[in-house]
Computed example of a mutant assay.
Amino acid sequence: MKGYALLFLVFASFSGYAQNTINNYKYVLVPERFNFSKEDNQYGLNTVTKSLLEEKGFTVYFDNSEIPKEIAGNRCNALNTEVVQKKGLFVTNLTLLLKDCKGNIIFKSKEGKSREKEFAPAYNLALRDAFTSLNDVPYAYDGTAIAEPQQATAPAVVAQQTPAPPPPPPTAPPVPETKEAAGTLYAQATANGYQLIDTSPKIVLTLLKTSVADYFIANNGVSNGIVLKKNGDWYFEYYKDNKLVAEKLLIKF
């Protein structure tokens, strides 16, 4: 008899956990800085995390930006993103966690790894390796609204129903401050991408390949960002003083 009771409890626990999946959530919040980082968006990790979650189909906001009333009024309607680092000798290890408002883990990735020696490519490659676990999980928002549990109260008085307010308008993407190209840059192939040099010759930008065509993780020695092609032109986009900057590039491959 005890065995049946224990089996029932295990099954009930599993069923409760299975009912709460990433499909219950439309929104995901990403912090400006992960716990292991020393500065906001270090190595471009937070921007890359936001981009990869959006590619999965989520609506993603940085947790210090303007968020829709649906989240502001109830943080339980959004998942919270954490990236955890496990220190290892000569290896960068990162794990992606998606948690609900109570801190319960709804999704945990595999441990993404990279043996790159330079910090920026090592962290970016380890993060993308961790995200491959999310690629294996189907996602389609099912319209479920996650409500924060309420304490028991006296029976509520039935009120007259009022029409639901219209959904908030979609948040427009930030408009970058655009800078014109300073001169032609020449691409030299490397093991993981390219390095762009000027006529000095001096290395101006380092590009790392991603799984998306014409989309690179970029670093100019001061700022981390992305290089991508838009409307036939190349741009280096990065944040400076919390403002998005887009530098136009003339690249000869």
Results as ranks from 00 to 15, higher is better:
Asn124Tyr: 00
Val48Phe: 02
Asp233Val: 12
Pro167Leu: 11
Ser133Thr: 04
Val245Tyr: 08
Thr47Lys: 01
Gly193Thr: 11
Leu79Met: 13
Gln85Ile: 04
Gly232Gln: 06
Gly57Arg: 10
Val30Ala: 08
Gly221Ser: 05
Glu55Thr: 03
Ala182Gly: 03
Val222Asn: 14
Ile67Pro: 00
Ser133Ile: 02
Tyr235Leu: 10
Pro168Met: 06
Val83Asn: 02
Glu177Gln: 12
Pro176Asp: 04
Lys50Trp: 07
Ser109Phe: 03
Pro68Glu: 03
Ile217Asp: 03
Glu247Pro: 11
Thr184Ile: 11
Thr92Ala: 09
Lys110Trp: 03
Thr21Ser: 15
Lys252Thr: 08
Lys99Tyr: 09
Ala140Val: 06
Leu207Thr: 01
Asn46Ala: 07
Val48Ala: 07
Lys50Ile: 01
Leu79Cys: 05
Asn93Asp: 12
Leu96Tyr: 10
Leu79Val: 02
Gly16Val: 03
Ala156Trp: 09
Thr210Tyr: 04
Asn41His: 09
Asp198Gln: 07
Asn80Tyr: 15
Glu237Thr: 07
Thr178Val: 15
Tyr141Met: 03
Pro165Arg: 05
Ala72Asn: 07
Thr199Met: 11
Ser65Tyr: 02
Ala172Tyr: 08
Tyr194Pro: 00
Ile146Tyr: 10
Thr184Val: 14
Ala152Arg: 06
Glu39Gly: 09
Asn74Trp: 12
Leu249Gln: 01
Tyr17Pro: 01
Thr190His: 13
Asp136Gln: 12
Lys2Glu: 12
Gln85Thr: 09
Ser65Lys: 10
Leu228Val: 13
Arg33Gln: 15
Gln151Ala: 12
Val30Phe: 04
Val157Asp: 02
Thr21Asp: 10
Glu148Met: 14
Pro121Cys: 05
Lys229Cys: 09
Tyr186Asn: 07
Lys102Met: 11
Glu66Thr: 08
Val10Thr: 09
Thr132Val: 06
Asn20Pro: 01
Phe36Ser: 04
Ser65Asp: 14
Asn242Met: 14
Asn224Leu: 09
Phe62Val: 12
Asn41Met: 05
Lys108Gly: 01
Ala130Met: 05
Ala18Arg: 14
Phe58Ser: 03
Gly232Lys: 11
Ile251Cys: 09
Ala189Gln: 15
Asn219Gly: 05
Glu32His: 12
Glu177Val: 13
Gly57Tyr: 03
Ile67Thr: 01
Ala126Lys: 00
Lys38Thr: 12
Pro31Ser: 07
Ala72Asp: 06
Ile67Asp: 00
Tyr194Ser: 08
Asn64Arg: 14
Glu111Ala: 12
Ala156Thr: 12
Asp129Phe: 02
Val60Ser: 05
Val60Asn: 01
Ala213Glu: 13
Leu9Tyr: 15
Thr144His: 08
Pro174Arg: 12
Val204Gln: 10
Glu32Val: 14
Ile106Ala: 06
Ile22Ser: 02
Ala145Pro: 11
Glu66Tyr: 07
Lys102Cys: 05
Leu228Ile: 13
Asn220Tyr: 10
Lys56Asn: 06
Thr162Phe: 14
Ser211Cys: 07
Thr184Trp: 08
Gly73Thr: 05
Gly193Asp: 09
Thr49Glu: 02
Glu70Gln: 13
Lys117Ala: 04
Ala130Trp: 10
Phe236Asp: 00
Gly3Thr: 10
Tyr25Arg: 06
Gln151Pro: 05
Phe107Asn: 00
Glu177Ile: 15
Lys26Leu: 11
Pro166Gly: 01
Glu118Gln: 11
Pro138Ser: 09
